[in-house]
Design a protein around this nucleic acid. Structure first.
Lengths: 356, 356
DNA sequence: AAGAATAATGACAGCGCTACCATAAAGCCC
DNA sequence: GGGCTTTATGGTAGCGCTGTCATTATTCTT
């Protein structure tokens, strides 16, 4: 139907106004084309498109018919330029390699799904310099809001975040001074709680099997919190092993094997996240080590897969979906940055599980 | 340093030209500001920014100094409007809930990291209507290229893809007629290969534990391929169980339990993906069923986690990273859509594993 | 040395849309 | 009924950038 109408429209010699300077020689319809077909001014058609201002029902219907007939798609570049603000929400995350950040993303989606906002996603691989680069390239599109992970950024990135005329949510972490809004949990506290929990369970010979991303600030904060808790109890880490690169189940498995080879006296090993802890459990299964009785295993995140294990993983639940949703909701509350900064603690839960 | 210079600049009364119509009352520097400070015309400054056309070294240096001093960020909305094309690459994927699509994304990133392109990511939750909506909202930004998953789209979406003046890559699947480029593998063949492999291993009583996303075309194609292979061997599926909703390890575990309760005679169960197959293995561990000897388990994707298990999962490796990288590379080869469609088969490998 | 090619720069218009202000018509108040 | 608000619509002037074409300086030919 649409195609047919378009055909007649052109066949009747009513073809859309040619673009003037020739380099846009397509027949992509513009708002002017819609207005002409609907018999209104451009600005009225624009109001219908944006559902803004008072429009007579009959006019609205005519414009909407014209839009459908032409297959008109608004040019957001033009709209953004004219109104000095876009409907984009820039989302800059460290990684998409495990479910954690996709969960945050789903939360964001949920919050903005009924609004005009569109998320634009960038991935930094935990590199602050990459974060800065991506951030600047996103700022070139004049986003209405920015969501970034964590409170640590390059000086330049921080400056742009502070000066920009957009809302900013820093998610996951609340240990620090946010630019505008911070939504997340204290990873130091989570590490501390891990330590206290395991001590109360009777574990004494603590090992840590981590990765070597120094820029994974939150894993570092949990590690420090854990050490603090041990120290308060007069204990300390007996051993730790760090594997270069990122985190994965395979690396967790290999790390635990190496760690135990050198330190068979360990009675519990903490991993920076569930993915690696799972690898630890797989190693124990393979090596015939009774998990919990002989060796406790503790993770972080509370992923579904850890809870689907024959023995549910002992870990800490981070509320990732809630963090994403809350951050986006807060950003939508007001277009202008308020005087006061907001810090929202979404907390965490210890999942006792059966592995520690 | 930058901030300091800016301060002096203003203190000396050289403050940037006020915006005329008042609604953009910020001091966000524009190309005109850069040009003024560098003592050139706007268009020359523009050429420096875009690294385009012949520029004298001295001029380039002056302009770059001005850019740094002002903290100038190009307004891509204006650039995109003026040149009728953006540097955006729209990426529309069904899900980010497992590592599969993030792997594709990493491949895309790898291919475009040295170019001016920026990916814009949308998630459809396997809903073609959502896909259409996201696609249209992305087209409003005049992307230079679009990457979508699969070859099935709503009629409207397909029409826009065909008519648009941008390159299109349809990834994951090659069983069908692409708009422009298809990069992926035949999921029907993968399912077929699964069936033949398991038959050759001596399995005869086949079960299938799946989910109920009818719109997961690729899982459906694998299912059909599997059934075809069984039929060719004079066999058929003894039983299948489908759980409503998406796929997860937990669901895989529950599905297998239900399936076995009703059909204890099964000697092998195929899952639509590794996540669910993992759940199947966890059920076996829990229920004390010897995997492979008593019950074969077969997945799809070849995720790391399945290979880190005490007994590596038998599955099919899909080349997700390669698919993403190849698709993006192909898109970069030419800005205009060629006459002929391209289909690139990235193939697959059977990972024999120890579970079937 | 005259002409041709190349390098370097700029003037100008316009991309498609929306903020601002103006206008006209209709309803409302006492 | 005269002023007032409210509803509905339009004219105009940009938003900040880049395509096109023109111009001038410089280098290269033969």
């Amino acid at each position: 139907m649409v195609a047919l109408s378009l055909f007649f429209f052109k066949a009747l010699g009513l073809s859309m106004q040619r673009k003037r300077n020739g380099y846009n020689d397509t027949d992509v319809p513009t708002l002017a084309d819609v207005a002409r077909l609907a018999g209104t001014s451009e600005i009225t058609a624009s109001r219908v498109v944006r559902n803004q201002g008072p429009i007579a029902d009959a006019t609205r219907a005519r414009v909407q018919r014209a839009i459908a007939e032409l297959g008109y798609i608004p040019n957001r570049a033009a709209g953004s330029l004219a109104s000095a603000a876009s409907t984009l929400m820039a989302v800059v995350l460290p990684s998409l390699s495990n479910i954690v950040f996709p969960d945050v993303l789903r939360g964001i989606h949920t919050a903005i799904t009924e609004t005009a906002f569109q998320p634009v996603i960038g991935v930094t691989d935990y590199d602050p310099v990459v974060e800065e680069r991506i951030l600047l390239s996103f700022l070139a599109w004049k986003p209405a809001a920015v969501i970034v992970a964590g409170l640590h950024h390059t000086a330049t990135a921080r400056r742009y975040l502070e000066r920009g005329r957009f809302r900013v949510a820093e998610v996951m972490d609340i240990d620090g001074d946010p630019v505008d809004i911070a939504v997340g949990m204290s990873h130091h506290e989570a590490g501390h709680a891990t330590g206290r929990h395991l001590i109360s369970r009777g574990y004494r010979n603590f090992g840590y099997a981590g990765h070597m991303i120094e820029t994974d600030d939150r894993a570092s904060a949990r590690y420090n919190g854990l050490r603090a808790a041990l120290q308060e109890a007069g204990l300390s880490l007996v051993a730790e092993h760090r594997t270069p690169g990122g985190s994965s189940t395979k690396i967790g498995r290999d790390s635990l094997e190496i760690l135990l080879a050198q330190h068979p006296e360990l009675d519990v090993v903490i991993f920076p996240n569930d993915d690696m802890a799972l690898g630890g459990i797989f190693h124990c299964m393979h090596a015939g080590i009774p998990v919990k009785e002989k060796l406790g295993i503790f993770g972080f995140n509370g992923l579904d897969i850890g809870q689907a294990l024959p023995m549910p993983l002992s870990t800490i639940l981070s509320r990732r979906f809630l963090i994403g949703r809350t951050a986006a909701e807060k950003l939508l509350e007001s277009r202008v940055r308020p005087e006061d900064k907001t810090i929202i603690n979404t907390g965490f839960d210890i999942i006792e599980g059966e592995t520690a």
